[in-house]
Design a protein around this nucleic acid. Sequence first.
DNA 1: TACTAGGTTGTTTTT
DNA 2: CAACCTAGTA
Length: 721
Amino acid sequence: MEALDPILSGLNPPQLEAVTTTEGPLLVVAGAGSGKTRVLTRRIAYMIRNGVQPWRILAVTFTNKAAREMGERVGQLLERVGVTVPVQSLWISTFHSIASRLLRRYGTEIGVPQNFTIYDADDQKTLVKRIMKDMNLENDALHVRQAIHYIEAYRNGSLKALYPPYDTILEKYKSELSAAQAVDFTGLLEKALELAPHVAHLWDYILIDEFQDTNHLQFEFIHRLARPHGNVCAVGDDDQSIYSWRGATPRFLIEFERQFSGAREVRLEQNYRSTGNIISAAGHLILHNTTRRPKKIWTAAPSGEPIYFNALDDERQEASWIVSRMLEHNARGVSLDEMAVLYRINAQSRPFEDSLRREGIPYTVVGGTKFYERAEIKDLIAYLRLALNARSDIDILRVLNKPKRGLGQAAVRRIRELAGERSLWHGLHRARDERRIGPKITEFVRLVEHAAALAEKRPPEDVLGFILEETDWLGMRASTDIESITRVENMNELLAAVTDYSDEERSNGEEPTLQGFLESIALVSAEDLSEDDEDTEKVWLMTVHAAKGLEFDVVFLPGWEEKLVPMEREDSTEDSLEEERRLAYVAMTRARRVLYITRARERMVYGRTLRTSPSRFLKELPRDRIKILSRRKPVTHDPETLAEVASHAHRHRKKSVKSSSYKGSSSNSPFRPGDVVRHKKFGTGRVVSVDGSGDGARVTVNFRGIGQKVIVASYLMGVDR
DNA sequence: TACTAGGTTGTTTTT
DNA sequence: CAACCTAGTA
Ligand SMILES: Nc1ncnc2c1ncn2[C@@H]1O[C@H](COP(=O)(O)OP(=O)(O)OP(=O)(O)O)[C@@H](O)[C@H]1O
């Protein structure tokens, strides 16, 4: 009897078609849980078994975790058919990792030094802030964030023109980056695009997962890589596009056929993940979006349990109710790691952590404040980065006086003076003869140079060990306060992480390098790395964004309240509401068997208790699939409504601007077409049309340099001409 | 230069 | 409710 082929069995006809159609452009559009990722994995294995050399295939995933899992699965499939493939030979990774890898190897061709440093979002903020300060622009957090917002939108292709002063800021920013031999996240993509013609010959087959969340730069990169052979396979679901705030757009998925001539399209319509009730409810919800391609989805699975909804008094009760349900499911045999709480914002994790800890249930919080974002860890990393690239001014400024060595503001000013137009590192060298600060600077320079020398010939753990030793940070062990103890623990943990990295590399027959370590932590989020005691089952706490592509038996969705789910802020638009709905759709479709949705009647926001109202999405779910567990119950006291304090309205704003209220509002429409209005984020613009009345009216405004947006009236201020 | 108290400010989502 | 920044003092 012949055994089933592990690579081609367990696929329905369209899936099979997608797996075996290896030549030419192919697009797989399909709803959640229809096996898109499975298709990609099988396809890679299929091609390799047919003789394609593994390193001729490039597969792009959305996260590093997804990349690792895909690599593992491909390896397993091939093993079962007797093909052995060295793991490292496969190019399966994120756009950013691919870019970084290419840049390391071929960057010199386009003027990027081999030892470039990767700047993260924080480094970017620091640098932009400094530039804005030098330009005498307002440089408080708000303005800096706004500047970065525009600059990034422009760079990733979602904003067509960049106006003053942002154009100048960007120009200066870019020149500072290149002087510092640094590349930021978007820079990685920009450089990769530049490099594309030089590297396109490396691959014959390109595959992309989660194609609906590709930005312009990424698409262009793929387009250029595919030019020689046209073998591109993209899979995605426009209803799951949830990263538009990062410049991603489903446009490239929609336009695929136009961009790649002769493209075939395969649709997958059967969902294998969830029960009928879940599929039906999620499908019903997403139907409320107007800008989407209609799509069929069905399941052979039974309806299953209804979707449970409950409203609790506040977020702590919400958490403890959910935790009780977890205990029940666990008692009935559902493993803890098959349960997940998926929330809108990281701050929502708090009450769940408290409650789980109280019940003694192990849990993992994915994301949130990451290990590598802690101050003491960033300090150490700054030292490590300097060891490879001393031209990175940001890193010098970060650690020059850490630990305190008497080099404060005045010293920095002097070093800047001496550096002139050149890097601070140059300034430091010249400052070694200064009367007062000279000796301390000499000491610092020596430290960095010694670390640099070590990095050349010793493994990364030795370099870190040297820095810890020299800075005597671990000496703080002596201090007894909790804070310094955890600091020291964190530093030791970093040392352990470096050592793990080196061991891992060695076991793969590679030489561990500091460069490699720094890269792995710059691009790989902490939770990707931490494989901490895998043998303990733990429930998952994470944002919906982080849950993309995952699945769990039992899923809990807390916080379905207006302003939170859907998230609504001053700059919310019709489009952003639709993205919120897609987010809710993604959240619901993570569940295999049981789905709970809850809300809190009151919630603490910024230390005040606010009254909430139920999410509009609840009304968009089909009644017959939902079981409502809550009974009406009035609140005893009288907290402010969310609307009353929206965006600090009553704290900061003039009376002339009222905040929005979902209960409707008394005043008549305050704006007419032609009026000039101001918006906090978009600036001034002219009213095109008004839909509805009162503060809740939707006003279409044409903003200068930005274009048309639909804004809720309450977020606009009239401007007298 | 280092430290502390007090005021203010804010939050999506992440490679 | 934090986390962060600023200004004033040791
Ligand atoms: N033909 C099939 N037979 C049985 N199970 C399948 C089949 N195809 C996919 N599955 C299962 O369905 C589930 C969803 O598959 P997969 O994660 O590949 O879907 P997806 O389309 O990528 O989902 P999403 O877009 O929601 O991330 C997985 O558990 C997978 O093993």
